[in-house]
Write a protein that binds this DNA or RNA. Structure first.
Lengths: 184, 184
DNA sequence: GCTTGCATGTAAGAGGTTACATGATTCG
DNA sequence: CGAATCATGTAACCTCTTACATGCAAGC
């Protein structure tokens, strides 16, 4: 039940259309939450009905019209209330770990290519995050971090970076283990 | 679509009842997959109908009867087929990160207690994992790790441990950031 | 002429959570 | 005497994914 809240935060950071939000959920917001455009449109419509967001239809030239959403006062208080109630720590779901334990009943060596693929995907993600950090937070063009919003965005990004680094190290551990098993 | 596969792996490691599986999903399997007993019973029933698992009704004294499930040949080939097809890297969902970015539009200091609570929960989980590692893999009673199953279980556990350590370090980073913001 | 980007949606189905329901036994 | 453990399930609801659907404009 946090997609609504993620959307409220995203719209507070910067109002935008459903399409634009979907793109942000693939980028900056993507390192802590994912959502497809279908999901976003549906939830946005419900939130509009509940008065949590305001809509402004914007006509554009050479492009389809769009609906620009922004957070309404009711949405702000919903978010504030949620921020003040405790949530329980997220539970993990690692499909790859299921496969790794399952490999004991099949051919462990057959998993090597798959694990290498995941390693590459996480390395790419890390590169992408680091580029974002340089661009937005530690580069020469980045403004001095004197506002709370930027600091908080940065600490969340650092979490994404730490997650990817940890994952890469672990996948290397998995590969070493699989190679050792294959040599027997 | 991986709960079935997680159940198949769990039953291959050791046959058991739905209740018993639910407990395992709270413990050892819990560091890479979670499921409630309701979910497990429903899926187990469907898997039984599809011939993926066999059932043996066991009468017990001083305890309710139970159904002991084990993997049928059809289940084994379903698992094997799944192991050989690629999956895409899991996407993350960190509710706490949504809160942290949302705190910019509320009171960042109010989040400190919540983050501390999460820190304690992850520290507890880490302690629990480390105890399990000592007991099952590195303790004096632990048998020499010469079988593939044990090695693979261990590398998955190491993943859980690495995840908790990374999370603890990041939560400390978050706390430091929140304290710095509160001082302004 | 084909692909990509912008922009919106519907519909079906799979997966997951929460609440409710029952009943015996053991331990403090 | 109350709580926890063992053991199974139903029902309602919410959430998420996947596939389908449309249409214009810009760039290659």
């Amino acid at each position: 039940m946090a997609l609504e809240h993620a959307i409220l935060v995203a719209l507070l950071e910067k109002p935008g259309s459903g399409y634009e939000l979907a793109r942000r959920f693939d980028r900056s917001i993507g390192y802590f939450w994912t959502a497809t455009h279908q999901q976003i449109y549906r939830v946005l419509k419900r939130m509009e009905g509940d008065g949590w967001v305001d809509v402004l239809e914007v006509a554009q030239q050479a492009r389809p019209d769009k609906k620009e959403y922004s957070v309404a006062p009711a949405g702000r208080s919903v978010l504030s209330a949620w921020l003040h109630e405790p949530i329980q720590p997220d539970s993990v779901r690692h499909e790859l770990a299921v496969k790794i334990r399952g490999a004991a009943f099949d051919d462990p060596a057959a998993l090597i290519l798959e694990v290498e693929r995941h390693h590459r995907a996480h390395a790419d993600r890390l590169t992408h995050y680091l580029a974002g950090e340089l661009r937005d937070f530690t580069g020469v063009d980045a403004p001095a971090a004197d506002d709370a919003g930027r600091e908080l965005q940065h600490v969340v990004l650092r979490g994404g970076i730490a997650y990817e680094r940890m994952t890469l190290a672990w996948l290397q551990d998995v590969l070493d283990t699989l190679h050792r098993l294959a040599e027997r």
